[in-house]
Simulated scan of single mutants.
Amino acid sequence: MQVIGLCRFSYPAIGGFQVEHDAIQDRIRYLYGAQRIEERFRLFETFALPCLKEQTDPDFTMVLVIGDQMPREHVQRLMDLTSGMKQIRIEAHPPRNHREIMKEILNRARTNLSAPCLQFRFDDDDAISVDFVERLRQTAVACQGLLDQNRTVAIDFNKGFVAEVQGHSLVATQILRPYYTAALGMYAAGGCARTIMNFAHQKIHHHMPTITMADAPMWVRTHNGYNDSRQGKVKHFDMTPLTREQEAEFQARFALDVDLIRQTFSSDREG
């Protein structure tokens, strides 16, 4: 069964953001501002990419969506970072309605619309477990009877970590949160044009049966200065520096090199 991931990398969609702008050109300037885009690249390099490279099941497609007005140097940097990763396909698009264009991109990525597929959203500042794709497929097989009776079914791995880089430390705490974007997948039956982007992730269970897996931490959600979903009033998490044992777990489960993360975020690089 085909597995498709969708990642927006500073794509200037119309809608889809909690940070509002008066005009699309204001949004583009915000997204490509030097400080913001540098932080996005650092997070992408140290959190998002390593876990994709180390997936135990490498048979998946990741569509990386960028804006067609992204500065050339940033496009080249993305191409250099993802060079050699056959799973990643970079697509540049003009600003359009957020959900409509993402639905189109996902359906175009299907090699055969008459065959079923599995889909997931992936944020450029998060990490998933290195066995996420493998377990997504395994769960679908184990629940085949439910899938056969429904056009769409959500598969939610609801245990993970919230993490933040603070100075020279990576702090984190483990949480259980249902229907988070990270490690939330969806089955779409053959012939069904609905995608995971048809639904708000926190309300996906209002529209279809869901399968919940809570046996192991499957994601790391970073908190940073430019989280779109964390603007305004947000929940506070008490996070503590990782122990050496937790650093080893982050390396094994998420391919995260904590020493490299510290080094990257303590550097004086500027975009």
Rank of each mutant, 00 (worst) to 15 (best):
S10D: 09
C192Q: 04
P116R: 09
D148W: 08
L43K: 04
I28F: 10
T139A: 11
W219I: 10
R8W: 08
C117I: 11
M197D: 15
A216T: 13
T56D: 05
M213P: 00
K103L: 06
D131P: 05
G271V: 13
D131Y: 05
I155W: 01
H236M: 10
C51Q: 12
A92E: 07
F265P: 13
L184P: 03
R89C: 12
A182L: 07
V19A: 10
D57G: 06
L147Q: 04
I101E: 14
V153G: 04
R269Y: 03
H236G: 06
K203T: 13
G84V: 02
A154Q: 03
I66A: 10
G145N: 13
M208N: 03
Q35W: 02
D148S: 14
L146W: 03
S229A: 14
D131M: 08
A189T: 01
L6G: 06
I261G: 03
L242C: 03
T243I: 02
H205K: 11
E245I: 08
L136N: 08
H98I: 00
M239S: 06
G232V: 12
G185S: 06
D123P: 10
D259M: 04
V171P: 05
M102C: 10
I28G: 01
R135F: 03
R36T: 13
G160E: 04
T173S: 12
A182S: 12
D257C: 05
V3Q: 03
F120H: 07
G190A: 06
T56P: 00
M208A: 13
I14L: 14
I66Q: 07
N158M: 04
L6A: 02
V234K: 14
S129Q: 07
K103G: 13
T173L: 07
R110D: 02
R230E: 13
V258P: 00
A34C: 06
V162S: 00
T243L: 10
A34P: 09
I24F: 12
V165K: 10
L64N: 09
T173Q: 10
C192A: 11
I24N: 09
L78N: 02
F60T: 14
G145Q: 12
L106V: 15
T210A: 14
A214V: 03
T82M: 07
D156H: 07
D148K: 13
G33S: 08
K86F: 01
R72P: 00
H168G: 04
A214I: 04
Y180P: 00
D228M: 11
G33F: 04
A48P: 01
S169M: 12
M79V: 06
H21R: 12
V3E: 03
I196N: 02
M102F: 09
Q119R: 07
Q246K: 13
I128M: 11
Q251P: 00
I14V: 15
Y226N: 06
I128P: 00
N150S: 03
A183E: 05
R137M: 05
F41Y: 12
H205M: 05
D124C: 09
G232A: 07
E20I: 10
Q18L: 15
G185T: 09
A48M: 15
Q87D: 01
P217M: 11
I204E: 01
Q2E: 15
